[in-house]
Every structure is written in structure tokens, then in C-alpha cells.
Design a protein around this nucleic acid. Structure first.
Length: 637
RNA sequence: GCUGAUGUAGCUCAGUAGGUAGAGCACUUCCUUGGUAAGGAAGAGGUUCACGGGUUCGAUUCCCGUCAUCAGCUCCA
């Protein structure tokens, strides 16, 4: 007797052996169509699995779930491998997992795949789907598994099997002429795959280790419907359109040159965005009791030895010599802050001291990882160091969390939080780390915030809370971080005089909100697709003349707007209005004012908005107060 | 850093099977004074095709090297 308990608690009984697929069909034909795999007694398994005697819980995985999609894409990866093996029989298989939004498969081949190869492979995959091959699972004892893979000339698979635990089940999946070592589960047959696409090829090291051989990785994705695939492809295209490197060039915000790889140049328009962000930052920090400092970019070797950077961060630092003495270009701002803290004796009454610094740091990043403003070799951290007594820690962390929450809200970003714990190669004792980690967790719990834990991902001097914001395309970016540090105060022998008249050791927080100003600009450029909110727009208003009869009035308006503090440009060129509008629109200017005889006559302005077009005629002062309100409230249009 | 692709006018790109380069946009001048996403004409623009070598009578084109850019190198059968 077989008893199946379904998700809703209902039961089904069978007096003969059944496969999960048959059970699903009994439940509903609709579910049978959507099903990709199942959880039998909590374990993920194939639909082809035959259920054994006894009582079982059964949960069907469909394409609505992440697990379901992952199975679906994993099977697509197998189809890819099969296609490659048919076309390139000498190719050796490595691994082929499903990943977020798709899958990949690594192959060892003599010649890298070309774009044309991808097309051919994709065609072959479609053939395999059409053949609707059944995926059959079977298990083999270790020796036989190794012999099989050796016979098939698959050295990577042999290596994988040899590394499996002694008691591990070694399973294979067979579809037609193709067999692959795989834990599964898989779709019942290749015909279930409805829409797929190979996206690109790239080199990837075997097991991600650069000492190993470089394999060829083919990336692809698959969806349950053609329309979903197209939607996904559209999103990729949209991301490409919004690429800050492209928009940065088109909108003339910044540039990067051969003369300084990873060292961005900011143009006048980029500087307006930058300065607007920094002004906003300064205002918000002043409100919250921060002082601002600026520390030098180059400091001597002793300092970096004392701070621990010399031992823990050397590969990322730049060095120089002055009068035969060793110096380093700062990769972080904290040691400079230490020196400022130490300039005088502090009373407990002075604490907490919140010292902010928009500090330019330099870090040596591998040349292959540089990426526009996202990954650079010099950038400005919106840093701050908070020095406090141990019993102030919680409130200070809460204060930073509140600040981050407020700032991200202004840009319309959602975010999530991650907590990173002690890494290898770190300073300090286990007790200190535990205390620090607990303090961060307590603050998160006090705010009732959800968070994910990343073991071993902390800084070398302390654990951290990271804020990952989510842009309008659903991509996440790590920006803000709060790092608790018991090490630096110790190393620099920081102290304050307590109520008892004795010296005590302060605790310190490092924290950033934007993270890097440069990267934040990249993120908002992509988030807003270059159409920045008015308060950030390099040009807020553009005055467009229809004929030169209105020039005089326009110049008067320009003066008035400048007095009002707006960033305004005029276009008096001898061009048609459509031409001028098109240009202003492409520059993504939020407000265009079209001025012709009628406006001169009525002493008004005809407003055209970047989004929404013609907004009708308005009184000049009325427009000014409207714009001022939008700017002051940092409205997003 | 590694693998692969790419590097031609300010921008986007074409091109030469090796015989000293072209389009569109932008720019300049002229005509046009025209109401909500490109009016017309003419002109200028490359120290000559990222840089350095090599092959060749001759290289932007072929070969080697360097630099830069782009994609990936984290997701573990």
C-alpha cells in the first residue's frame, strides 16, 4: 500500500507501484503540464521516480518556483552538452549547473567556440528538444562509475566522482545517446523545454582556479514560454541601453582614457551630479551631528604598518617614495581619521564623535575587473568614522541604519541587508569578533530587520552590515556598509577619559552610505536611464526659441532663472523647434520651455516635459515655484 | 592577472582579396524665421587606420609584441 500526503494535507492511496508523474496526472492535468520535478519526503527528485511502499509526503515543483526553474534550466544545460557532443565529439564535459536567470556548461575543447558555433549548437539543441528524449536516471557503484567515465574519455567527470564522499549516491542521467554524471533532478523529457537561447561564450577556469586549465563556458537561458524568454531578452537589452558607460559618454558626464585605466575623468555635467550628491550628503550628515574632515592621500609606511594595511591589504595598495622614505597612497580613510582623533584628549562627554570624510582612495584592482565607474582604481568613499563608548554602539548603528534608509528612499531604491562575519586572514581575538558581530545583530534585531548572513565575508578588522540596493531592473548593488572595529582603536591606542577620570578605549564604526560616489553615480545613471531627477539634472531647464524675435525675452528669462538658482541653458540657434526639442530630449533635460511670439506677447512660458511632452502655457513665477518645489523635495518624475 | 573578441574622423560604424581611407551624426558657413523628436546646400575634419617591431618594392590590411576596451573567470555532477 502506498499513501501519498499532498501539500494541502489530502491523501491518495495506491495499491500498485506508481511513478510521481502518474500521481501528478491524478491530481490534475494542469499540474501535470506545469510540473518539472517533485519533493518526495522533502527530497528533490524526478517525476519519473517510482514511489516505494509506505507513507510519503509529496510536493510538486512547478515552473512557478525557483527550484522548478532551476531544474528546467539544468535540463537545458544537459541538452546543450548533448548538442555539443554531437557536433564536437572530442569535447570533454566539465560542469553545467543552472544559475540565476539561466545556466552554463563548461567544455574542454581545442578551439574556442565562435558565435557561429553557438548558432549551430542552438539549432542542434532545438533538434534534441524536438526528439523529445526521455531522461532516465540510474545509479552505479563508484568503480563502475569511474570505469564508465574513463571509457567515455571524460577526465573531469572522473575527477568529480573521485572526490565524492564514500557513501555518496553516484547517479547518471541518460537522454538518447547522451549520458552525464548528475545528481538531478531533471525534467522527464527534453521535449518539455519550450524556449531557450544561448547567450555567450567565455573562458572559465576548471573549478574557478586560475592554475587550472581554461575551459570554454557557454551561457544560455531557457523559459517555459517564448514570451517569457523574449521579455528576459528585452530586459537584457534595456540594461544595455542604460549602461552607464554608454550614457556617461552620450550625456557627457565622464570618461576614462588610456592614460589612466580605472581612473575616471569627470566632465562639467558629471560634476554637477557629483556635487549635488555631495551637497545632499553634507546636509544630511550635518543634520545628524557629523563633522567633516579631509585627510591626506599619501601617508608614510609606519602608519600603514600600524593600521595593519601593510600586512593585510598590500596587494591592493600603491606605493611611492619621498626623500628616500616609503609612503603609500591610501586605500582607506580610517588611519587618517585615527590621527585626527588622537590630536587631543577626549572626554566621555565628547562622545560619540562622528567624523565624516569624502575621501579619495586608490586601490589596485586587476586590470580585467575594471568596469566603467562601477569598478575603478580610484574612488571617493562617503566615509565616516564614529568613535564612541561601548554602550553607545547600539544607538549609533541604529542611527546609521536610519540614515541609509532615508538616503536610499530619496532615490526610490529598495534594499536588503546582509551581515558578514569573520574572514580568514583577519586581526583580533575570537571574543572581540563575537562581541562585534553580536552588536551588529542586536541592532538589526532591534529594528526588526531581515538579513542574510555571509560567513567569512567581513573586513579584516571587523564584521559588517551591508546594504544591497535594488534598481528598477531588479539588479542589486552593494553600497552602504557599517563595519564595527575593535582593532583600530587598539592599534592606535585611542582613548577617552571616562567619568571615573581614567583612560578608556573607545569603540569605532566605519560606515559609508553611497559606498563610492563614482559607483553610486553609475548606479543611478542606469536606474534613471540617464533621466535624472530634476535636483540632479546637469541642465534643469532649457529655453528654446522659435524665431529670433523672442531672443530678448528669452535672455531675460534666462537671467531670472539663474537668479532663482536653476541650471538653465538657452538654445537660440537658427533651427526649427522640432530640432531643438529633439536635441534637448536626447540630453534628457527635464523641462523645455518653448518660447515664440505668443509667449513674448503674453509674457508666459510654454512648458514641455521630458516625460509627458507638452504641458501647456504657464506663468513664469508659477513655473519657478513649481520647479523649486520639485528640486527642494528631490522629486522623481 | 588569465582566456577570447575588439581597437579606423568628436560619436556610431563601413572598408581595402597588401597599392598611402569612406558614410551618417556632430562641427563651420550660407540659405531658410520655421510652433512641440532631425529644413536645405556647401565646407572643413584622419600628423593615415591604438602603439612598437617584423615580412614586403609597398602594410590600415599579413605576422609578433605592448597597451587599452569589452565579455567571462563567484553560482560545483
Amino acid at each position: 500500500m502506498i499513501t501519498i500526503i499532498l501539500k494541502d494535507g489530502s491523501r491518495k492511496n495506491y495499491d500498485h507501484p506508481v511513478t510521481i508523474q502518474e500521481i501528478v496526472k491524478d491530481i490534475s492535468p494542469g499540474l501535470a503540464r506545469a510540473a518539472v520535478a517533485a519533493q518526495l519526503d522533502g527530497r528533490v527528485t524526478d517525476l519519473n521516480t517510482t514511489v516505494e511502499e509506505g507513507e510519503h509526503t509529496l510536493n510538486i515543483l512547478t515552473l512557478d518556483s525557483d527550484e522548478g526553474m532551476s531544474v528546467y534550466r539544468h535540463t537545458t544545460a544537459h541538452v546543450l552538452a548533448q548538442a555539443v557532443k554531437r557536433l564536437f565529439p572530442q569535447a570533454k564535459l566539465a560542469i553545467g549547473p543552472s544559475i540565476e536567470n539561466g545556466f552554463y556548461y563548461d567544455f574542454d575543447v581545442d578551439k574556442p567556440f565562435t558565435a557561429e558555433d553557438l548558432e549551430t549548437i542552438e539549432k542542434e539543441m532545438k533538434k534534441i528538444v524536438k526528439e523529445d528524449l526521455k531522461l532516465e536516471r540510474y545509479e552505479l557503484p563508484r568503480d563502475e562509475a569511474i570505469t564508465l567515465m574513463e571509457q567515455m574519455n571524460e577526465p573531469y567527470k572522473v575527477e568529480l566522482i573521485k572526490e565524492l564522499d564514500d557513501d555518496a549516491v553516484i547517479s547518471f542521467y541518460k537522454q538518447g545517446d547522451f549520458v552525464d554524471l548528475c545528481a538531478g533532478p531533471h525534467l522527464p523529457s527534453t521535449g518539455k523545454i519550450k524556449a531557450m537561447k544561448l547567450l555567450n561564450v567565455a573562458g572559465a577556469y576548471w573549478r574557478g582556479d586560475e592554475n587550472n586549465k581554461m575551459l570554454q563556458r557557454i551561457y544560455g537561458t531557457s523559459f517555459s514560454k517564448k514570451s517569457l524568454l523574449n521579455e528576459y531578452l528585452k530586459r537584457l537589452e534595456e540594461a544595455k541601453k542604460r549602461d552607464h558607460r554608454k550614457l556617461g559618454k552620450e550625456l557627457d558626464l565622464f570618461s576614462i582614457h588610456e592614460e589612466g585605466p580605472g581612473f575616471p575623468f569627470f566632465h562639467p555635467k558629471g560634476m554637477i551630479i557629483r556635487n549635488s550628491l555631495e551637497n545632499f550628503w553634507r546636509e544630511e550628515h550635518a543634520k545628524r551631528g557629523y563633522q567633516e574632515i579631509k585627510t591626506p592621500i599619501i601617508l608614510n609606511r609606519e602608519l600603514w604598518i600600524k593600521s595593519g594595511h601593510w600586512d593585510h591589504y598590500k596587494e591592493n595598495m600603491y606605493f611611492t617614495q619621498i626623500d628616500d622614505m616609503d609612503y603609500a597612497v591610501k586605500p582607506m580613510n580610517c588611519p587618517g581619521s585615527m590621527i585626527i582623533y588622537k590630536r587631543k584628549i577626549h572626554s566621555y562627554r565628547d562622545l560619540p564623535i562622528r567624523m565624516g570624510e569624502l575621501g579619495l582612495v586608490h586601490r589596485h584592482e586587476l586590470s580585467g575587473t575594471l568596469h566603467g565607474l562601477m569598478r575603478v582604481r580610484n574612488f571617493t568613499q562617503d566615509d565616516a568614522h564614529i568613535f564612541m563608548t561601548p554602550d553607545q554602539v547600539r544607538d549609533e548603528i541604529l542611527g546609521v541604519i536610519e540614515l541609509v534608509d532615508y538616503v536610499y528612499g530619496v532615490f526610490g531604491f529598495k534594499y536588503h541587508i546582509e551581515l558578514s562575519t569573520r574572514p580568514d586572514n583577519s586581526m583580533g581575538s575570537d571574543e572581540e569578533w563575537e562581541m562585534a558581530t553580536n552588536a551588529l545583530e542586536e541592532a538589526l534585531r532591534a529594528k526588526n530587520l531581515d538579513y542574510k548572513v555571509n560567513e567569512g565575508d567581513g573586513a579584516f578588522y571587523g564584521p559588517k552590515i551591508d546594504f544591497h540596493l535594488e534598481d528598477c531592473l531588479g539588479r542589486t548593488w552593494q553600497c552602504g556598509t557599517i563595519q564595527l572595529d575593535f582593532q583600530m582603536p587598539e592599534r592606535f591606542d585611542l582613548s577617552y577619559i571616562g567619568q571615573d577620570g581614567e583612560k578608556h578605549r573607545p569603540v569605532m564604526i566605519h560606515r559609508v552610505v553611497f559606498g563610492s560616489i563614482e559607483r553610486f553615480i553609475a548606479i543611478i545613471t542606469e536606474h534613471f536611464a540617464g533621466a535624472f531627477p530634476v535636483w540632479l539634472s546637469p541642465v534643469q531647464v532649457k529655453l528654446l526659441s522659435i524665431t529670433d524675435r523672442s531672443n530678448e525675452y528669452i535672455l531675460k528669462l534666462e537671467k531670472r532663472f539663474k537668479e532663482a538658482g536653476f541650471r538653465v541653458e538657452t538654445d537660440l540657434r537658427n533651427e526649427k523647434i522640432g530640432y531643438k526639442i529633439r536635441e534637448a530630449q536626447m540630453e534628457k533635460v527635464p523641462y523645455m520651455l518653448v518660447i515664440g511670439d505668443k509667449e513674448v506677447e503674453s509674457q508666459k512660458v510654454a512648458v514641455r516635459m521630458r516625460k509627458g511632452g507638452d504641458a501647456g502655457v504657464m506663468d513664469v513665477e508659477e513655473f519657478i515655484s513649481l520647479l523649486r518645489k520639485k528640486i527642494d523635495n528631490k522629486e522623481i518624475d
